[in-house]
Design a binder for these strands. Structure first.
Length: 193
DNA sequence: ATCAGGATTGGCT
DNA sequence: GCCAATCCTGATT
């Protein structure tokens, strides 16, 4: 089932951990989806967060309603998708275990190995066809959705339910020591171990 | 108007 | 491990 707005109206770190094991779904002509196995939280007063210096045109979605997608372009090449929890806070989806639409994901990524298909923030957006067009869209009322872990009968991501590993975040240059990255222990689909 | 730098990835050494 | 690709944003002149 689709996660309701109330799911997102909670402490950002709590939401981040609860997102692990959930299904990120993109419904188009064809559906692609994968289980969230790795996330990072970006908080208020956090120098690494895009919202740190206040609201701008680019980051305005982070200051909007919880449960919406904040999508941005990085290095002029890749897009990353975040789950907004409100007040300038958001959760970066860093890796998925492919679930539905494997063939389309492989075509979009130009490769076949499921382990490398969505094991990175730029990879998973490409695999699911997420672009800047999805910036600001609702995750509970639209084609891009987050669903509970039991959404695919009889199927569960590797390492879920199970232990959650907490580490420092990847690829940032500020607030490098904050332990705000979370992933499913035992998953082969995380971006790095 | 200009410019440095980025929540990355893939290819090469 | 190192580095180029590629372009938008925000800060500065």
């Amino acid at each position: 089932m689709i996660l309701s707005p109330a799911f997102y109206e909670r402490d950002t770190v709590t939401v981040a951990k609860d997102l692990l094991g959930c299904l990120l779904v993109h419904r188009e002509e064809e559906t692609t989806a994968g289980w969230i196995v790795e996330v990072e939280a970006y908080l208020r007063g956090d120098p690494a967060a895009h919202s740190y210096r206040g609201e701008t045109k680019r980051n305005s979605v982070m200051f909007g309603p919880p449960g919406h997608a904040y999508v941005y372009l990085i290095y002029g090449l890749h897009t990353c998708v975040n789950v907004v929890t409100g007040a300038g806070e958001a959760i970066l989806i860093r890796a998925l275990e492919p679930g539905i639409g494997l063939e389309l994901m492989q075509a979009r990524r130009g490769m076949s190995d499921p382990v490398s298909l969505a094991s990175g923030p730029g990879k998973l957006t490409q695999a699911l066809g997420i672009t800047m067009d999805q910036n600001g869209t609702s995750l509970y009322d639209g084609p891009l959705q987050v669903r509970s872990p039991d959404s695919l009968p009889g199927r569960r991501p590797e390492g879920f339910p199970g232990e959650i590993v907490q580490t420092t975040r990847i690829g940032i240059t500020k607030a490098v020591d904050l332990p705000l990255r979370f992933y499913l222990k035992g998953s082969r689909y995380v971006s790095r171990r």
